[in-house]
Design a binder for these strands. Sequence first.
DNA 1: CTAGCTGCAAAGCGTTTGCATCAAT
DNA 2: ATTGATGCAAACGCTTTGCAGCTAG
Lengths: 142, 142
Amino acid sequence: MEATQKAVSLLETAQLRQTPQRIVILATLLAEHTHPSAEDLHLRISPQLPSISIGTVYRTLESLVEAGIVRKVRSESGTMFFDANIEPHHHLYDEHARRIADFEDARLHALIAEYLQKHPIPGFDVYDFQLHISGSFQPPVS
Amino acid sequence: MEATQKAVSLLETAQLRQTPQRIVILATLLAEHTHPSAEDLHLRISPQLPSISIGTVYRTLESLVEAGIVRKVRSESGTMFFDANIEPHHHLYDEHARRIADFEDARLHALIAEYLQKHPIPGFDVYDFQLHISGSFQPPVS
DNA sequence: CTAGCTGCAAAGCGTTTGCATCAAT
DNA sequence: ATTGATGCAAACGCTTTGCAGCTAG
């Protein structure tokens, strides 16, 4: 399915207003295979919708997160990155390129989930967990 | 050993100048069992050393991190928290109280490390990993 | 003596927000 | 028509930085 159509249908089921801004933001994010920041998205969208403001991008992303359509992940540097992949997955933090990539490994996820279930943490109620793996994509020339 | 003495000896072995500011900052952090922010530390230190500036706190903490004496962890909200416990450990993110607590579990750490070693990620060099467990300390009254 | 740390204040950066206007429903 | 979204710009919170003076070595 095309990204724009998918965006429209997701907004519809989430009962969110289908404004041009929201449709473009969500469609752009769905078409991405990376994890863009709000600013990244704003830059990418500006040519198609020059009047869109960065504030709207932030507010829209926040609504999408609340609706469960989008996930946000904070990077080491503090910037938020957005992710339309809401399947449980982990992240690889590239320390050199300063970007974040998805890391899906159902077995690893199950392994940790099982461990946490078998060994509950006293006084702490676990909602969710995420593995942050830091390293680099291309080993630095040493 | 007393915190101040430990701070002095850590600064010495790290070959960092033993200024009153650095000694107090490190000693305060060593005495903490929580993960204070730079501002927390500044507030806690001000009565003893009223002239100390927040900039110095940040610069000192950065030096200590570089020296491997201190770890920093970014919270969900974006604020940095500092931690004098440099043993490999994971963190519990309390979504309600917005604080971070240590979670040490050598078996879980070993389990994940072993898995990552046995199943290398193609094209990615792993330096380190951290499990972010989110939840709450006192289950909300529902 | 001198390399490097400190205090101060200003600037930086990503993000949020108040407000008047505008548009989806 | 009404509720909620938008653009704009100002403000925000945390962190970093330039600079002149100070201090540990």
